[in-house]
């Protein structure tokens, strides 16, 4: 966008919205929206505290474990569905059901099954992330050119070799897109899980802040989470672009 001959960076609009936020905060219209400057000050204040560091650590750990499980199970499952009609028929109805289901409603169930702890949060992360990973891996595998599949067969590739040396790589662009979407959903999963369990991680902090009307703290925490989710998405987007060179030519 150009204004008066100056080229504005894409992030310029963020400044506008930040200014608006500050203004609304300063007008004191509602206790729910404190000025942005106050939030930023609070952010700098709470980030170094041990409570915050602990919450961050637990969140990062449950997130990482959950995502790792979702990828380790989801990608092979998706490839198996893409390659085998029987597996596909068996699993597709469930995957399609869960990918659009309101999964938050399942969290109380997982709480009953796995207790009020990290396990429940990990399970929630897996539940949120895995379905889209499966679906994208499946779509990528179904797009593999039939002649590559025949090539694998005619040069004597075994099942495992075909998976590890061909299918996985041929479907990589879609798999990465799925993982990226899965990670964004996993961020939702880890927060919703923690909020509902509400005795660990950021869920615990949210509980304290909101029950004490510490709005600046609340917003500071939200800023951290939003920024984290956005950075994650952007990083993966860049990674995906690196694989574009062959996805464009693989025919």
């Amino acid at each position: 966008m150009d204004i008066l001959g100056y080229r504005l960076p894409a992030s310029a609009s963020l400044l506008l919205w930040a200014a608006l936020w500050e203004l609304v905060g300063r007008l004191g219209l509602t206790i729910l929206v404190p000025p942005l400057s106050g939030v930023v000050v609070r952010l700098a204040e709470i980030v170094p505290t041990e409570t915050f560091q602990d919450a961050l650590l637990i969140t990062a750990r449950t997130f990482a474990i959950g995502v790792a499980i979702a990828i380790a199970v989801g990608v092979p499952a998706g490839i198996a569905m893409g390659r085998s009609a029987i597996v596909d028929r068996l699993l597709l109805p469930w995957v399609s059901l869960f990918v659009s289901a309101p999964l938050s409603a399942l969290v109380p169930v997982t709480m009953v099954l796995f207790g009020f702890g990290e396990t429940t949060v990990v399970v929630t992360v897996v539940l949120f992330a895995i379905w889209i990973i499966i679906l994208d891996a499946r779509a990528g595998t179904r797009n593999i050119s039939p002649s590559l599949v025949e090539m694998a067969a005619s040069y004597g590739a075994g099942r495992w070799q075909a998976f590890a040396k061909i299918y996985l790589w041929a479907a990589l662009p879609e798999i990465l897109a799925g993982i990226r979407l899965g990670l964004v959903r996993a961020v939702k999963g880890v927060i919703i899980g923690q909020l509902l369990v509400s005795v660990i991680g950021f869920g615990y902090l949210f509980e304290i802040y909101s029950s004490n009307f510490l709005m600046e703290h609340m917003w500071a925490l939200l800023l951290v989470l939003f920024a984290a989710a956005f950075t994650l998405d952007a990083t993966l987007g860049r990674l995906e672009k690196r694989f574009d060179y062959y996805s464009a030519v693989r025919g």
Partner: peptide
């Protein structure tokens, strides 16, 4: 050994690896 109409090369592998792929398997 089969030679394919649309080549069926591995787009992520260079010429050496593609040529050696049957032996790699």
């Amino acid at each position: 050994a089969f030679v394919f109409q649309d080549f069926a090369l591995l787009p992520w592998a260079n010429v050496v690896r593609n040529v050696a792929f049957g032996l790699e398997l």
